[in-house]
């Protein structure tokens, strides 16, 4: 089975996000970039298939700026077999999906696994849009994939249990979580990745329509600073508990 994972490079989750002086973007100079966490789960899920069946081929692709090459190298170091870069700056989500549809048509994977959303803009658009463009079955937010004769069983967590869906191949799923935490690149993996070529081409070379309905960011602002807490001191435990319950219901409105 060949599995393709379109991934996105995003600011690392440890980065303290700052709004840029223009008020419509975040500061990206000098920050650490990472593979988006849900994409990492997708990679881990695919690599677990490869651990179980070494004939599995796992490929990654990204449509993004030159710096995304680091994310692809990291995916190779985790154990992916192939990686390629479609160079683009600020492409609209639909244009990204069209470019990926082209990559899928060439690479002919049996299964495409996308993170359910990227952790920077949280739109969750590209996965379903890509399935729509390909005309493939799409199952959202899966937690497990199990091969079945010419098809896959895709597990989803639902309230109090899970559902199992079956999709004929080729299919696309978006990933909520893998069974294990994503693996760290091992040093031997890093050295293996070093020897691999990451072919690159500009978005223009794919001949896809880059015009797409889009939006503009009007303004960005950090969340308001949190107010101070409140300490309930006077009274015995029962009285304090009553006042706590009242405060949670009437002031915090969480009960």
């Amino acid at each position: 089975m060949k599995i393709l994972i379109p991934l996105k490079q995003v600011p690392d989750s440890t980065v303290r996000v700052k709004v840029a002086p223009d008020g419509t973007s975040v500061v990206t100079e000098g920050i650490t970039w990472s593979i988006s966490p849900y994409d990492e789960y997708a990679i881990e899920m695919a690599l677990e298939r490869k651990d179980a069946d070494p004939s599995t081929v796992v490929a990654v692709v990204t449509v993004g700026p030159e710096r995304s090459r680091d994310a692809l190298r990291q995916a190779l170091a985790m154990g992916c077999d192939e990686a390629s870069l479609v160079r683009a700056e600020g492409a609209a989500p639909l244009a990204v999906a069209r470019a990926l549809a082209k990559v899928v048509a060439e690479a002919k994977p049996d299964l495409v696994l996308c993170g359910k959303q990227a952790s920077d803009d949280d739109q969750g658009f590209v996965g379903p849009a890509l399935a729509e463009l390909l005309g493939w079955p799409h199952v959202a937010t899966i937690t497990k994939v199990v091969p079945a004769e010419g098809a896959v069983e895709l597990w989803r967590e639902v309230e109090g249990g899970h559902e199992v869906w079956k999709a004929p191949l080729p299919a696309l799923a978006t990933v909520h979580k893998s069974e294990k935490e994503p693996r760290y690149p091992s040093l031997p993996g890093i050295m293996k990745a070093k020897k691999k070529d990451i072919p690159e081409r500009p978005l223009d070379a794919l001949g896809v329509d880059v015009a797409a309905p889009t939006w503009t960011v009007v303004s960005m602002e950090p969340p308001p600073a949190r107010g101070g807490g409140k300490i309930l001191r006077d009274g015995d435990a029962k009285q304090i508990a009553e006042r706590l319950a009242t405060a949670l219901r009437d002031e915090a409105k969480v009960l």
Partner: peptide
């Protein structure tokens, strides 16, 4: 051990990771 840290600059032919002393 599995991540290769315990043999960071041991050459690959001896089962190491083949990196260097700076790594």
């Amino acid at each position: 051990g599995a991540l290769g840290f315990m043999g960071t600059y041991v050459p690959e032919r001896y089962g190491g990771s083949g990196l260097d002393a700076v790594s």
